[in-house]
Structure formats: C-alpha cells, structure tokens
Computed example of a mutant assay.
Amino acid sequence: MNDSKNDIKEKVRENYSQIVEGENKGCCSSSGCCSGNSEGIDIAQISNKLGYTSEDLETDFIEANQGLGCGNPQAITNLQPGQTVLDLGCGAGFDVFLAAREVGIEGKVIGVDMTSEMITKARKTAEENNFENVEFRLGEIEALPAADNSVDVVISNCVINLSVDKEAVFQEIYRVLKSGGRIAISDVVKNNELSEEIKDNLENYSRCITGAIPAEELEEIMEKNGFEDVEIKRKENSEEIVQDWSTEIQPEDFIYSAYITGKKPE
C-alpha cells in the first residue's frame, strides 16, 4: 500500500466526519463498519445483524446508533456496577450509553474518538438524555487521553483495524487498564491476502478491509504487550456482517468479524 500513514488517518477522519454530517452515502455500501446514515439503509436491521437486542434498540438515545461496527462488544463484556469503561473510537456514543446503563451511576464510561464531529454529537446526546456517568474525549487511540491504571474494561467496535499503528494501540490499552482489567473488542481479522490493487484503493481502508491483520499477528501483538488469556473468536454470522462492505470485491473472502478478549495480569 503506497499511501502514507497520515493519508490513511486523514481519509478515515474525513469519512467519519461525513457520516455525522450526512454527506457519506455509502462508505461501506449497505451495512456495518462505516455505513452510517447512507440512504436506504435500515440501521435497526444492521444492528440486529451485529448482535444488538431489541432492548438495546428501544432507547431514548437511539440517535447515537449509526449502524457502525462489526458486532456488539456488550455481548462479551459482562460489565458490573461501579466499573470504569473506556470505548476506543466511540463514534456518536451508542456503545458508551449502553455500557453506562450497566455500570450505573457509581460507574463511569469514557468514549474516545478522533473525529470532533462525532464527539460533539455524542456530548449533545448525553446532555439531552441526562447521562451523568459518561464523558467524551477527543483523541487518538494510539495516544489515549486517559490516566495509567484507571480503567476496568476497554471496549471497541471495528475501530482498531483502522489504526495505522496497532501495536501502539495495545500498548496504550495495557497502560490505562488496571491490574486484572479486561478487553472486549469486536473487530475484523484478515484471513486471505489482498491484492495490491485492493490495497492501493484508500477507500478500502476506511471500509475496514485493508487495515485488518491476521489473527496470528494480532494475538502476537497482544501477548507481546503483556496480555494473557487472549482469545480471537470468529462470529458465526461473520459472512453476513461483512459481505456488503464493498461493491468491488467480496469482503468475506478476505476478512471476518471476530470477538477479541484478553486481560492484563493481576
């Protein structure tokens, strides 16, 4: 891939800014990852496919759900009242608000996103719905705006694949987690090599295709940076989730949606 890391980062930032502003009409064709508010898309249908329940979708903060992601990290978090949760690449905050219900007023959920438009939208929704246990911070997941040893659980939904420095991301996750803290991530993993033509199309990076890495490489990065009990589990309906992310290729031939878990040692 010939594009620089800065080019990739700015392209991703641009696409997600356009989603908030309603200008992106199909970054990922018709579902998941960065589909956003594309014309004709049934976000509820997408969300059900990703693993969200009807209870998740019948909320006063449903405007925060933009049909993004490749799964539902809440399904593997087992959050407890009073915990502090950090959401990497929180977007408009839907997963943050769902987590906030689980940790209760004694807990706290922090959302981090590099797109100012997303953060503005998330803060507005939090204020309108009187969330007192959430906070949204502008920042990049390779340099998290969070203190050392301050978080019980880190969640993320189809964002780490977009990072141009995945090792830095996991170094930062390890830094901010408390001893015994856990990660519960939904993301995509590469299972076949992409052609240079596919990789040279910068749109395929924003579509959560080009930036995916093999499970073996991802596991190696996590274990190298101190995580234990690492598990990468393919979602049963992965093909259904990713198949519409591109009109040029068949994404299911190259990537799959997975739940990724692990923990920082006690």
Rank of each mutant, 00 (worst) to 15 (best):
V176P: 05
A147H: 14
N65T: 14
E102V: 09
T261Q: 03
G107I: 00
V164E: 15
I260C: 01
M222P: 10
E231H: 09
D95G: 04
V230Q: 07
D200G: 07
V153I: 06
S238F: 00
E23C: 05
R123T: 12
R137M: 12
S163H: 11
Q45Y: 10
M1S: 13
E63Y: 06
C27I: 01
G139D: 14
L68S: 03
V176Q: 01
N201D: 06
E197V: 09
V85E: 07
E127H: 07
T247S: 12
N37P: 00
V96T: 10
N130Y: 03
E239D: 15
C90I: 09
S47I: 00
F254G: 11
L177T: 14
S179K: 14
L57C: 13
E21V: 04
K264R: 14
V169G: 03
V242W: 01
S17R: 03
C90L: 08
D87T: 14
K235I: 00
N161D: 04
F136I: 06
I105C: 07
S156M: 12
N157A: 11
C158Y: 00
L218S: 05
N129D: 10
S156P: 10
G82C: 08
F94M: 02
M114D: 02
P265I: 12
N130I: 15
I232G: 06
N6F: 03
E228K: 08
I232C: 09
I141V: 09
N225H: 10
L50W: 00
K233D: 04
I213N: 03
V109N: 04
N161R: 02
N78P: 09
I141F: 01
A184D: 13
K199V: 13
G139I: 03
A212Q: 01
A147G: 07
L177V: 15
T77R: 07
I198G: 06
L98Y: 02
E219R: 04
A215R: 03
D229I: 05
D113F: 08
V12G: 00
A215Y: 00
E14P: 00
W245G: 12
V153C: 14
S195M: 11
K190I: 01
L177G: 06
Y174F: 10
N130A: 09
L86K: 08
A122L: 02
Y205K: 08
I62E: 11
N129P: 07
N15D: 11
Q250K: 05
L138D: 08
D187R: 11
V85K: 02
S163T: 10
S31Y: 02
L144C: 04
C208G: 15
M118N: 06
K124N: 08
S179P: 13
P214F: 05
K264E: 08
T125F: 13
Q243W: 01
A143Y: 09
D95S: 05
V112F: 01
S238H: 13
I173R: 04
E239M: 09
V188S: 02
E236W: 01
M222Q: 15
K121V: 15
M114N: 03
Y16E: 06
T53H: 14
S38A: 15
Q80M: 14
N24D: 12
N192F: 11
A168H: 01
G211Y: 00
P81A: 06
A100T: 00
G67L: 02
I185V: 08
N65K: 04
S17K: 04
G69L: 09
A184Q: 07
E127N: 11
N149W: 11
N201Q: 10
S195G: 13
S116C: 06
N201W: 05
V242A: 09
